[in-house]
Design a protein around this nucleic acid. Sequence first.
DNA 1: AACGCGCGTCAGGGGCGCGTGAAGAAACGC
DNA 2: GCGTTTCTTCACGCGCCCCTGACGCGCGTT
Lengths: 225, 225
Amino acid sequence: MTRVLVVDDEPQLLRALRINLRARDFAVEVAADGTAALRLAGDFHPDLVVLDLGLPDLDGVDVIQGLRGWTNVPIIVLSGRAGSRDKVEALEAGADDYVTKPFNMDELVARIRAVTRRAGPEESVRVVTVGAWSVDLADKTATGADGGTLRLTPTEWHLLELLLRNPGKLISQRQLLTAVWGPSYVKETHYLRQYMAQLRRKLEADPARPRHLLTEPGMGYRFQP
Amino acid sequence: MTRVLVVDDEPQLLRALRINLRARDFAVEVAADGTAALRLAGDFHPDLVVLDLGLPDLDGVDVIQGLRGWTNVPIIVLSGRAGSRDKVEALEAGADDYVTKPFNMDELVARIRAVTRRAGPEESVRVVTVGAWSVDLADKTATGADGGTLRLTPTEWHLLELLLRNPGKLISQRQLLTAVWGPSYVKETHYLRQYMAQLRRKLEADPARPRHLLTEPGMGYRFQP
DNA sequence: AACGCGCGTCAGGGGCGCGTGAAGAAACGC
DNA sequence: GCGTTTCTTCACGCGCCCCTGACGCGCGTT
């Protein structure tokens, strides 16, 4: 059964969503604020998160980034504001879809189905090949074609894992910094340059001309398989 | 069947629209003034509203806001006045498209189709085709028919994403400027011309004659799928 | 015709982001 | 306590992105 975590601070909306989703055969858990949402997400391991941006304690974008730091569970954002600025910010932070209130319940369910369908038949990757190296994300080892192994520091692993788990996808600097160093480090882009350089030195055949760990100027980085 | 509410105070235009839309398999309801329109919208729950701005009782913008208070049903505005001031006001209030009278019936139907197609219970778009290019908004990649990739700067992405996420819909200059550069840049329409030209150079087969990134003089820009 | 206005196009320059190297500060091992 | 590894900080040069100004064109107004 598909497990859904609903995060909203309005009791009646929470209740309406719970009833409607349970009637459609979803397992539903609810949270009323951002901190509870982040905690429950760790315990409940939902297949999908429905997140209201207007929470009492945390900013919605911070909740998204808090989740994106360790999981790429699909996130559907609810918001009372239709402003495209908010929408873009949420999507940039890692949301998968955006629904403005007031919304039609059938539409929301349709989007939930669409998002879970898309994320459904995925196997969580364990081994990724980066050039001549074979990286095992589960037991944290990297072995070369000649059988030699590579040593990576914890920070390097954290950064590399985020990129490798989203092959081909652009990960914004903000996302990387909040995930690896925390939300208060979003300005320290030089950390990224520093550690991306180290990863390239260790993994790329020609560190000056990376073929797999690519820079997207002004935006972020991307792992190209 | 798609349900359309037509709001206009001219009986002959009302009649013409009803006949034409019914012939094209729309379910049509009509209202002759703003109050009737707001009441009927609540009862009829249309999938689309065609709204004449020149109503006897209420100002057109007030009708739009009255609808937007509880629903985000697509609204296409009709107006006899070609003044850009009215257009922009209507679009800012939440209208989805704008047609000046006298209008071509086929054009109106085409816009109705475009707007309803977009708002249907479809999954949120990730990949959009623009001419020969395939643009992935999630991965931030653009690949051509020959497999080549395209590089876009952050500002170009921001602008393009806004247009591509609202296919067929007219986005006002004000909206684009506030979303990409911030609210204090609403006068800098020069930026738009600059970056729209760059996007056309990169995406359009014939940048001088754009087929997908269209200019609506005095109002804004539109992405035509 | 002259003028203003909006749009498209081109060229140039300043500033910022990126890559790189190096060194100090902190944490960890024994 | 000492050496090593890891994290953080600083400095420097280069390339490119963003902004700016200019001009031409079409269109409607005076």
